[in-house]
Amino acid sequence: MATPTEALEAVMPTTRELVLDLHRRMVRIRRFEERAGKLVESGDMPGFLHLYVGQEAVAAGVCSALTDADQITSTHRGHGHAIAKGADFRPMFAELYGKTTGYCKGRGGSMHIVDMNRGMLGANAIVGGGIPIAVGAAFASQYRGDGTVAVSFFGDGATNIGAFHESVNMAAVLNLPVIFVIENNGYAEFTPQDRHMKLTDIADRASSYGIPGVIVDGMDALAVRDVALVAIERAKRGEGPTLIEAKTYRYFDHQGIKGMRILYRDPAEVEAWKTRDAINLIEAIGVERGLVSAEEFAEIWAQTEADIEDGIEFARNSPDPDPVDILDDVYTS
């Protein structure tokens, strides 16, 4: 798996600011997910959640290389992408609680967070549904010549759906500035990768479309950021899309924190991945290289905690939608 090479280190040095930035994004995702998961399981919050815990380095690494003008599309497991792209806790919690102050005014819930101000073009409950939409966003970038790029995040399972293949091929043919990011967590729901495809490395699929396929350690936010930067630069030069496969893992169940009805993964496998935890890794790098102190990292955790409490409080105190408005926004008036 690719780690930052010395050559990359020279042009893209690991600075204190970068370590703090990636750490903050990842901690915000982790604590949001852990809290939200508990709130649903205690019955305080409606619906069900697909939690992103374990995969934080992918969203954080990629989104740290983007600006608000760059667009992303996301999945059913989308909270991490939204937070990494800069979404605020208040409207996120409010959306999960189905309140008017939520990102979708309570209409969408967990699987449909959107933040047009931050280039978060929406989470999607249809597997593969977001992939062609990112191609469209990239088409707009090329059309306008505004130098922006689009990124589509999706899972290993999603690469088996027709929309993936059609989208990557079309983006390749049209040289569109789009980056396809596979978050390979080894499972599509309860089906392991070796039972849903014959490939070990999904990045190999890139060769079918004549574009670069890159494998990266999805537990290493710095490594993810590096490959994202290379892909973004390539896209901006007009050389077309890149397929990035980030090897990662989800710590919780497909849906919710726990609730495995059958044992579809070996608990030892889960524990093994946790020893390579993305947040532990960045903290170790920060401290070992003398860039960030343990106290500074602790401060980020504490600040995140406070922001989460504030977000939950805000959401709980926000008004419910009024059914009288149920037909609003079906069409643009």
Binding site: G106, R107, D320, P321, I326
Partner: peptide, 8 residues
């Protein structure tokens, strides 16, 4: 479309 919020 079907709204998310339970009240809706």
């Amino acid at each position: 479309p079907v709204p998310f919020a339970p009240i809706l």
